[in-house]
Structures are given as C-alpha cells and as structure tokens.
Design a protein around this nucleic acid. Structure first.
Lengths: 180, 180
DNA sequence: CCCAGCATGTAACGAGTTACATGATTCG
DNA sequence: CGAATCATGTAACTCGTTACATGCTGGG
C-alpha cells in the first residue's frame, strides 16, 4: 500500500470505477499511467482492499469495475490520520531558469511563453471541472461531509495556483523586456 | 544526460563545486539525494561534460571540485533551446483532501495545520535566501545577464507560491470551522 | 560522549515511464 | 482510411529513495 494505492482507494470509495476510469479521474491530482495502475489494482484486490465485478459492454471492451471493501475503507480512514509526506515538485523550468544568464533574451522569453500557454490550458481545465462540479451538486460542495467537498477545494487550489504561476511568467517576461 | 544532469551542469557553470555542495544548492529547486548525485557526476566526468580537481582539506575530508568543460557548456546552451517537459507535482495531501468527507473535522483540520506549518517554514527559507542574494550582489539580480538573475526569480516564485498555498490552507480551515 | 555536519561512495529496492501487445468502435 | 477513445495487460528500463559503509571534526 503506497501513496498511489491510497489515492485509488479514495476514488473508489466515492464511486466504483474501472482502472481506465480511475486513471482519468486521477490525472488532475496525481499523474499515473495505466501501466502503473492496472497491476496495482490487481494486487490490492488480491490483498482484499478492493473487489471487482466484470461488466460486459456491447459496443466497447468489457470492464472490471472495482469497489472498496470494508478492509479498504478502514485502511483509508487510518491513512488519513497519519502524517503526510512532503510534496515534491519536479519542474525542469526551474533548472533552466537558473541558467538564464547563459542565453539570449529570445531563448529565455520562449521558455516562459511556452509555460504561460501551458498554464492557461491547465487553468481552463480546472475552471471547467469546477463549473461542472457546481452543476452536479447544486450548492453542496462547500459542505464538509459532502463527497464533493474534497474535489471542490482541490479544483479551487488548481485555479489559484495556475493564476499565481501565470503572474510569475508574465512578471519574468516583463523583466526580460525591460532590458531589450 | 537527464534533467538532473543538466541541473548540475547549470550549477557548476556558475560556480565550480563539490558533489556535496551541489546537493545543498540544488535542494530548494530540485530534490535529489547524494546517492543519486555522486554516480551521476562521475558519469558526466567520464563523458567529458565536467572535470574535477581533488582539493585536500586539513580539518575536513578532501573534496572533488567539479567544473564545467567546453562540451558541457555547449550541451547546456543546447538544452535551454529545447522544449521543456511538463512539471510534475506529487502531493499526498491532494489525495487525502479528496477523501475528507470520510473523516471527522479534527482529523481534517490537522492535515491542513501540518501543511500550514510546513509552508511557513519554506516561506521563511525562500525569504531568507532572497535577502542573502540581494546582499550578495547589491541591486544587480534584476539584470538578465547577471548570473544571479535566475536564482532571484526562482526565489521570488518560491515566496509567492508558498503564500498562495498558505492562503489555501487557511481558507480550507475556515470552511471546516464554519460547520463546527 | 554523542550528535550534527562535511565528504564520498555502493547496493537494493520501490516508483514511474516508455514501449510492446491486442482489439473494438466512432468520428472526421 | 486513419486517428482517437475505450479497455486491459506485460516487459524493460530509468529515476529516485532507503539503507549500508566509512571517517574526521567541532559543539553541546
């Protein structure tokens, strides 16, 4: 049971889902490929944290829909009381930024333009998901106890952190332009 | 030559340093343990990106001081022109946040109090480093072309992202309290 | 006297990515 | 007709962490 395993458990606790679906739901908060998820789900099922039913589909491939067991729910609650490991941010742009003095203004500028575009994309995604969430549960997400509460505050965080990063990109580009 | 390798190259390009020292300098921007750095430096030296001189010390163990070669500097400049891979943030708190509805207010609150404390620590570190940097190069860091420019904008980013995260933690705690 | 910091390294393991593998449907 | 999406899996590899290993110095 590693961090990803608990993450999957948390998703399944709200809505039973297939591995493919879990991968998609998890994307905005934790990046994991299907090749990491499928074997882990199988292992968690063997150890009794999850169970699955095979759901045949006519137009699409069959799916394995996983749901949480009592053992899984207990483990999940226990995990929430334990201390959280420190977040790790790996951003190649940080390392490139450190070396900006070695390069010309154009090359430098391009780095931040690219990041600006990426942030706008992400911001748009978080805002869209937030709107959808509000529609899906009219007014309730601010209520702790609502199964949407966590997602609501996570998406809000996504929005504000993307805005902060955008501001930074623009500030850096201004600094670069001032010396043109 | 992976991302970490370029990161080390960037540090060494500014100031020749030992592996131990590089590990410390890199910490605020990219987390890597000495066990990952030492073998990588050795490999980079063998491939001609770096060279080192053994510096004997009387009171402390001898060190290998690495400096960048012409091949290394060329590779570094080339890397800066290539497109940057997307940043990855792995934060266990995100996954726990998703499951907040499964737990009581106290457990939930503790998670964010812990994170608040961590952010305050980090904020303090970034602010201290920023002050030191300003002293070390009176007024010049805003100048692209100054070898301190990159570090200056990175530390500024550190400060503002920690402030953003602190605000989020406090907002979440307010929401939790409103329902007490 | 023990712990923290300086300084370097290796070995074993766990986490994560890329690539291989298959196969149906739908949309442009 | 080809690309994208749904759906599941394995294999090989790289990246990153933890633990093992050594040794000296200075401070509490």
């Amino acid at each position: 049971m590693n961090t990803l395993a608990y993450g999957l458990l948390g998703l399944v606790a709200r809505t039973p889902s297939s591995g493919y679906d879990l991968m998609l739901q998890l994307q905005p908060f934790w990046q994991a490929k299907h090749s990491q998820i499928y074997p882990l789900l199988a292992k968690m099922e063997q150890e009794g944290y999850l169970e699955f039913t095979r759901v045949p589909q006519t137009d699409r491939p069959d799916k394995k829909v996983y749901s949480i067991t009592e053992k899984g729910r207990t483990a999940l609650r226990e995990w929430l009381t334990q201390s959280t490991s420190e977040p790790v941010l790996r951003d190649e742009l940080f390392l490139k930024t450190y070396c900006l003095w070695l390069t010309d203004r154009n090359t430098a500028r391009k780095l931040f333009e690219e990041r600006e575009a990426h942030c706008l994309e992400q911001l748009n995604m978080y805002e869209t998901f937030l709107e959808e969430l509000k529609l899906a549960c009219d007014g309730t997400p601010q209520d702790h106890g609502s199964p949407y509460f966590g997602e609501y505050i996570l998406l809000s965080r996504g929005v504000s952190s993307m805005r902060e990063e955008l501001n930074w990109c623009r500030w850096v580009m201004e600094l670069l332009d001032q010396q043109a």
